[in-house]
Design a protein around this nucleic acid. Structure first.
Lengths: 140, 140
DNA sequence: TATTGTTATACTCTATAACTATA
DNA sequence: TATAGTTATAGAGTATAACAATA
């Protein structure tokens, strides 16, 4: 990872490095919460939507197969982090919602990431510049 | 993912989004190359060191168990992307090196990422600013 | 008939522990 | 005795295909 093939190569190398460090950071908190990355990812999604999603909708959000959501929801339900409720409107669909424990776990994740991220070491104006650049790259 | 709890929260949200898009981008190329993320990750590491690493050294680079490297090296060797050579100096250690096909696959990955990354849409001076900011955050 | 979720199954990735061969 | 790599095994995560319940 030390070539300098193009200006973008360095940039990608840096972002991969950032992703790896963030991953390592999250791993620590997950051990503490006795969760895996896949489960945390589901919790993240569940806490980020305005209205609780159905199994199918979560599958779309996670870009995975619905059967995988069944697997994940089983484990989250066992741990008391999520509830599955039959939608009275359409009794085929089940609505997933974080419990209080689920929200608490998600808050813990946000907290650890905001405090421990390498980006937290930048000055406020630098953070602002970074956000502007990333927003532009990501297409607003 | 729509709260605005802190300035850093937005930043983390953006970087998670960037990581996800990059992941999706890589997934496309991997399908084309008939590779998985884990195998591509190993290829990436193997192409990024000055001198070919031993099994153990690659395990450290990938932050995984040596037995996992055995698994990955088996598959890469089967596909003709990597060679395992006994180190004459110390016949316990095996040196891993990319074959021509291996280098070619890695070049294809770099190419796809540099061309398809959202960061490629930024102007050169913006890319430069971004690199400066990220370098500082990552600690140098 | 079509859709939602589940089940059965298989494959990849990963780590732990026991093993071998070298040192 | 210590180290490098492998093997056996188990568990998480994932997708595909077949299925049940509901629409």
């Amino acid at each position: 990872m030390e070539e300098a093939e193009s200006p973008i190569y360095d940039l990608i190398d840096l972002t991969l490095g950032l992703a790896e460090r963030t991953h390592a950071l999250i791993t620590e908190v997950l051990a503490e919460l006795d969760l895996t990355h896949a489960l945390a990812n589901a919790i993240w999604q569940l806490g980020g939507t305005r209205t609780p999603p159905s199994m199918r909708e979560l599958a779309r959000g996670l870009r995975c197969d619905p059967s995988t959501v069944t697997f994940l929801a089983d484990r989250l339900e066992q741990r008391g982090l999520v509830t599955r409720t039959v939608d009275p409107t359409n009794r085929r669909v089940k609505i997933l919602a974080l419990t209080d424990s689920g929200h608490q776990a998600r808050r813990r994740l946000v907290e650890a990431m905001t405090a421990g991220s390498p980006l937290a070491r930048l000055a406020p104006d630098e953070q602002h510049s970074l956000r502007t650049l990333l927003s532009k790259a990501m297409g607003d």
